[in-house]
């Protein structure tokens, strides 16, 4: 828990680094500072999805502490959902700044939208299974199957189908103009946002554990 509480120190430093310390990028200018927030948020949404999927696998293998593991997968997905929506919004603002359109159906954008749809589907499935005692099994299978398909989407589809726009400004930017200071800041913020995710995740898990214990002690 202490490690996660570091986020209180690191987040202000990260904001300082990204807004004041780092020089603006060559082509985009100050708008490039969006990068330091957009990329970590996108990273967290994939990480949360991965964590939820791994918990589902653990749940199906161990078949113990069912309620707690199910809640852990669900909590991670809930945080991931919020971060995915944030990624989509911040990404479209950035797209507006750099390409002049909010939405372009670039492969990267497509994959994040599909990730969002997977999350939405997971939550609707979860609520439709409310009265089913086997909810943990079915929702875990769905998460695992979508986790298997996700790599197909994220890595293969953009490569097989190059984006309609030739190399985007951002991609060029990332490849050519990323200086050392930018790289450090980006890395710093990725770590910070990961800690933030972990922190929120721990809190929600603790809360779920309390609820589960309360309910099970209720009627004995």
């Amino acid at each position: 828990m202490f490690l996660y509480r570091l986020v209180y120190v690191l987040m202000p430093i990260g904001i300082f680094l990204s807004l004041l310390w780092v020089p603006p990028a060559n082509i985009l200018g100050d708008a490039s500072r969006i990068l330091y927030f957009h990329v970590p948020v996108a990273w967290v949404s994939f990480l949360a999805f991965l964590v939820a999927g791994l918990h589902s696998i653990a749940l199906l293998i161990k078949k113990s502490e069912i309620l707690y593991r199910e809640a852990m997968a669900y909590n991670s997905a809930a945080i991931g959902m919020v971060f995915t929506v944030l990624t989509v919004i911040t990404g479209s603002i950035w797209a507006k700044v750099s390409w002049g359109h909010f939405w372009n159906w670039d492969p990267r954008e497509t994959s994040i939208v599909i990730l969002m749809l997977i999350y939405i589907a997971y939550f609707s499935l979860f609520s439709a299974l409310k009265s089913n005692p086997n909810r943990w099994g079915i929702s875990s299978v769905y998460l695992i199957i979508s986790m298997i398909i996700a790599p197909f989407l994220i890595f293969i589809v953009p490569r097989v189908y190059p984006s309609l726009h030739p190399d985007t400004i951002i991609n060029q930017d990332k490849k050519i103009h990323l200086e050392a200071s930018m790289r450090i800041t980006l890395f710093f913020l990725v770590v910070t946002f990961t800690l933030l995710y972990g922190y929120i995740y721990k809190i929600t898990n603790k809360l779920s554990l309390i609820i589960i214990k309360l309910r099970s002690s209720h009627d004995i």
């Binding site: 997977i118 609707s124 499935l125 439709a128 299974l129």
Partner: peptide, 29 residues
């Protein structure tokens, strides 16, 4: 999966869409 839920066919569209997209995409191409 859908058969085990309470909503069935209306849910099928929602949960199958994101997972069938890559396949449809490539098949169409």
């Amino acid at each position: 999966i859908v058969a085990k839920t309470s909503m069935r066919s209306s849910l099928f569209t929602v949960i199958s869409f994101p997972l069938t997209i890559p396949v449809l995409w490539i098949s169409i191409n």
